[in-house]
Structures are given as structure tokens and as C-alpha cells.
Design a protein around this nucleic acid. Structure first.
Lengths: 165, 165
DNA sequence: TCTTCATGGTCAGGAAGCCTGACCATATGA
DNA sequence: TCATATGGTCAGGCTTCCTGACCATGAAGA
């Protein structure tokens, strides 16, 4: 390690901070921007962080988000109950339900994207354009992004180190 | 945004992935490296991600980790119960308890640091030295690191967007 | 066609990781 | 000395996931 590198602990923390900062900015901007959506929780925003909600199925979203379909189910149902999306029959697969954003859902999606854009803008200001682009590029490289989305499905954070025995 | 920038969603996801990748590598390497510690969960490792456990108090750790002392309390007690640390009286403050790593605790700390070092090494291989250093520098900049640690205490991720009403 | 297996969705229950509230004991400073 | 802050602790709750168990449907092979 060339940069004077702390044992490693700080890096772990810093990555955590990056993540936290992102979530926080998201929550903050949204809490202010939309006087709406009081019934939404962070987990729901996590979903809106991705594109393509509209027109996909819960199972697909679950795969993209790296969670079980049961977990995603709950989020989707919640979102439906509060009018952010509807579930229409999937043409060509009677089992599946096609998710459709309502106007409210679309507005929320916009809010989330605006919040993210704002945060990125502030980072960009802080870092300067070149280094910001570099960060972007590095993130892409580290998280491996040749394919569009599905890679996420293979990643899952174990709640424990070992199985629940 | 100069790099062809997706609406923002991908960036959010990518940062999440960075975080997840880190946690995962940590879990994986440790699960393999130490056939020990079956009773440890990720939350405990999160603690070991920081230095300075040994000799600090639970309240300090809580501040560093950005969580309440009650939450940290549970983790610390757990760690104590399973022999990773002890709590001795704090000289100079009868209320406080000084945390002390046991040999097992110290070994675990080493494992965690080794795991992190290994992950960073792999990123370094993938990115090349200069860009790796750049990432490091950018992370430092974004997460703001003039002061040693305490800044984290001010950050908290809301579980909801609004207060619990 | 019948059978088998995979997949989308759903219900039920639980674990983990946090949180808030309420307290006690001790520091600390006016 | 008295108010207030702080370390630690207990109790209880909420959120966000998870696993297990199912049903209905789809796909693929015997």
C-alpha cells in the first residue's frame, strides 16, 4: 500500500460512511423535497434507487435488489397499498403480476432521482469534475458492470458469518 | 454530469454494491480464515473494523460507530460473554468500564484487519496503484476526515423518512 | 399427455440490528 | 451544593430482512 494506509479499519469505515452518506442525503433531500409520502420508509426508496420498476415483476425486482421475493413482496404490497403502484396481470404469464407506477409513484421516482442527482452534484463540486469522473469509473470497475443489472442477484450479505444452524 | 450518467439510480446501487462487496469479502475471508468464532455476527465485525477497541469505552465505540450506546452495549456484552473482551474498571471514572481485548479478541482483530487488507489488495490489483490511491483519497475527501473519528457520531441513518410521529 | 421440476406469488413466523424510553450512579461545573 | 451531563443498563419496539411452507402456473422431458 503506497498511501500511508491505516491497518484497514479506516477504509472499512470510510466505505460504510460513503454508503451512509448516500442514504442520508437521500432521506434528507426527500424529506424536504416531498412533503408527501409520509408512509414511506428507507427500504422503499432503496427500490426506487433502481430504474425499471415500471413494467417489471416483483421477482425481477427482488433479483435486482439482491433480496428474496418474499421480502420484495412486502415492499411492493406496501407501495401498492399506498398508491404508488398497481399490479396488473402479466400478458403471457398468468402467475406473474406486472408492476405499474401510478402518477404518485412516478413522481416519487423522480424525487429519488433528483435527490441522488443533487448528492452527486455536491460530490462533484467537492471533488472537481475529473476526480468525480474517476470515482464514478472506479466504482463501475470495482462493482463490475459489464452486464446491465442481474449481477446483483448473485450477491447477498450474510446476516451471520455462519449458517443459522 | 460529464460521464454518460444514468439517472442516478445506478450510482446509488453501485455505492451499495461497494459496501456490500466490502462486507461480503469480510465475511468470506473470515469464515474461511478463522474456523473459530461461530457465535460472531456481522455487527460484531463492524466493530472490529475500527481500531482502538482495546482501551476505549463502550460509549466511545458507540460514538465512533454512529450508534446509540444501548446498541453498542449489546454488542459489547455479547463480545464479552464469548470471551473476546473484558471490561475492567476505568481508572479515573468509576462509571466507565475500560474495554480490553482478550487474546481471542486480539486474534479476531487481526483476522479482520487481514481480511480487509486482502480485499484492498485485490482492488488494488484490479485498479492499479494510482487509481487505487485515488479512490482512497476520494473516499477520504467525501467522507471528510480532518478529525480523527468523532464526526461519525453526528451521522445516523433514519429508519424512516419522517420521525416516528 | 402425463409427470416433474422450476418459478411467481403469498402467508406465517422469526432473527438481527438497530432505536427510544426510563433509570441509576457518578462526574462536572456553576 | 445543586443542576446537568455522561456511562452504563434494562425493557420494549420497530424495521428489514430471512426461512419455511404452499398454491398455481409454466416449461421440458418421458
Amino acid at each position: 500500500m503506497s498511501t500511508e494506509m491505516e491497518p484497514g479499519s479506516r477504509t472499512g469505515r470510510r466505505i460504510g460512511l460513503l454508503h451512509v452518506a448516500f442514504d442520508q442525503a437521500l432521506a434528507a433531500v426527500l424529506a424536504e423535497a416531498g412533503p408527501a409520502h409520509p408512509e414511506l420508509r428507507m427500504a422503499h426508496l432503496q427500490i426506487f434507487r433502481f430504474d425499471g420498476i415500471d413494467g417489471s415483476t416483483a421477482a425481477e425486482l427482488a433479483a435486482h435488489a439482491g433480496m428474496t421475493k418474499q421480502s420484495m413482496h412486502e415492499l411492493v404490497v406496501h407501495l401498492e397499498r399506498f398508491g404508488y403502484l398497481t399490479r396488473e396481470p402479466h400478458p403471457g404469464d398468468t402467475r406473474a403480476r406486472l408492476l405499474r407506477l401510478t402518477p404518485a409513484g412516478r413522481a416519487l421516482e423522480q424525487d429519488v432521482h433528483r435527490a441522488i442527482a443533487g448528492l452527486l452534484e455536491s460530490w462533484r463540486d467537492r471533488l472537481g469534475p475529473e476526480r468525480f469522473d474517476t470515482l464514478w469509473e472506479i466504482l463501475r470497475e470495482i462493482t463490475g458492470d459489464r452486464r446491465p443489472l442481474p449481477d446483483l442477484a448473485t450477491i447477498s450479505v450474510p446476516g451471520r458469518l455462519r449458517g443459522p444452524e
